[in-house]
Design a protein around this nucleic acid. Sequence first.
DNA 1: CTGTTAGCGCATTCAC
DNA 2: GTGAATGCGCTAACAG
Lengths: 333, 333
Amino acid sequence: MARTPGRTTITDVARQAGVSLSTVSRVMNDNATVDAELAERVRAAALALGYTASPLARSLVLGRTQTIAVVVPDLENPTFVGILRGLSRAAADDGYHVLIADSAEQVDEEAVLATQTRRRTDGVVLCAPRMSDAELAALLPTLTPAVVVNRPPQHGTPVVAADYRTAFGGLIDHLHGLGHRRLAYLAGPPRSAADAERRAAVADGLERHPGLEIAIVPGGADFDSGAAAREAVTATGATGVLAFNDLVAMGLLSTLAEADIRVPADLSVTGCDDIPFARYTTPPLTTAAVPTADLGARAWAAMRAQLEGGEADAAVSLEPRLVARASTGPAAR
Amino acid sequence: MARTPGRTTITDVARQAGVSLSTVSRVMNDNATVDAELAERVRAAALALGYTASPLARSLVLGRTQTIAVVVPDLENPTFVGILRGLSRAAADDGYHVLIADSAEQVDEEAVLATQTRRRTDGVVLCAPRMSDAELAALLPTLTPAVVVNRPPQHGTPVVAADYRTAFGGLIDHLHGLGHRRLAYLAGPPRSAADAERRAAVADGLERHPGLEIAIVPGGADFDSGAAAREAVTATGATGVLAFNDLVAMGLLSTLAEADIRVPADLSVTGCDDIPFARYTTPPLTTAAVPTADLGARAWAAMRAQLEGGEADAAVSLEPRLVARASTGPAAR
DNA sequence: CTGTTAGCGCATTCAC
DNA sequence: GTGAATGCGCTAACAG
């Protein structure tokens, strides 16, 4: 009644090959020098029995699980999925597994989840855009090794992030170049790190372009936030809108269409992230392409560096690329 | 030099509380009856030391990891992400973790991945739409307990699937009801289980509606397949197109717009899945809403049933819901 | 009710 | 070079 597959144990192999446990272990890990003939006998026995060392037992004795945890706020967000995807493939290439923890947007659950999954893994990659700086700072030391994604540099833990500030600045310049002088920033979740970066970009832009005005409209991070903000946006009198991200832009786009407000003739709209669907909106969305897969791969690189005992770069910053599509055009007035 | 967090062991707690290991173990698992006062002392010690039992050690001795693996072909596909999301949350509610294995569309890697991740988990949920029936049948017994997603019923392993056949039939009826008599099915990946179901629906539809014609156009499962198929589709003379899924439909929609073919005036288009973006296309996409989160939750339920020693339902089938939007309308001619 | 003992499956000191 | 013993941290029989 073999409940566990691969139930053959190292003892079985040792018996079959007529050697001791240690010898089998050595051969399997091609450690030390083992007599060629013995080694062959062991290999044959292992093959015949279909033996593979129990990852669990190895984890316990070696103190490492070959697994890392990734905490994400919500798998509904394509950006996090992209990061997860890049990360998981990069880790797999190095023989590591990925445990995924979806915090379901429960900010207060994130720390618990991270701590909990950390115990069954060798490290955790934290995507927690909403967690407060204070909580993050308190949490990170207990997680070592850890990697933080899309937050400002942290003390003691490497950060991998897209440079949203510069990216958003590029979007502002793009609109300014098209003659827009009055813009609106349809903001993201209050107090989120992501929103703070965009606001900084807004401040930068204002400084860079005297005469430019940017109204700030409260928003959120999803479709509905965008759709709900139409009136507030139009009330600003802006000719161009910088949506927090592509999802928000898409929500806005759909409600603008219903209201017969033409894009970009009446109003230019930009997104951020360049999720795969951004080029299929009507009109196709001008946005900043965030290299999510790269971000994930870099996050893994930072984790691996620590796992191997080295020091990872304190912060890597990836530059999003401006993608001008048809949702932006010359200013209406 | 505490490398592992929570480095305090059960021995530390026992010493601190002045009891034996077993007593601590009993208290922590609130097994058997332990003297109230002793129990309190243990709890206090554990709290003071910040002790939590090592999941690894428990896994080894208990023979279960409280973790399951999910194999998906590609995280780029929103359907699988939806399933993963529903699954992961349901599992988390029961205190289980999810190890994710992205096969990166490498069909031949799926079996290896499944086998490998199975060893460090208590079971595997397999999303492998392209794997051959023969390979699947050979693989499943070695994975027990396992759950298969979106494939026909299997011998010995529970299957959780959306009823694409009926769903697609509904789409066909919808178009037929709008007066369409000549349709095109923009097919999915050859030999995939998903494509087979849709073809069956096509056959059903033909039988149900004498006089209806449905041309079959080779396609794929992504945006590009849809975009690449425009000429082949229009060449059929169809007034309505059944795209393999929403992604394909979106790709087709975008190329139709470029060619000034109006939807639905000139051509009606349907998708399948109702991914979150389907309602934001232009025009919004008529499709069949597949309850991915439910699918994931049901997959977990089937897994849990087996984990608890019971028998899961051999097959659960979820009915997609027809969502009529603006991409379909009365037949052109 | 509590403490002692024996493993879970493996890697790794030690002696030989 | 190889085998015998020790322990990773914990749970579960087993006595007391």
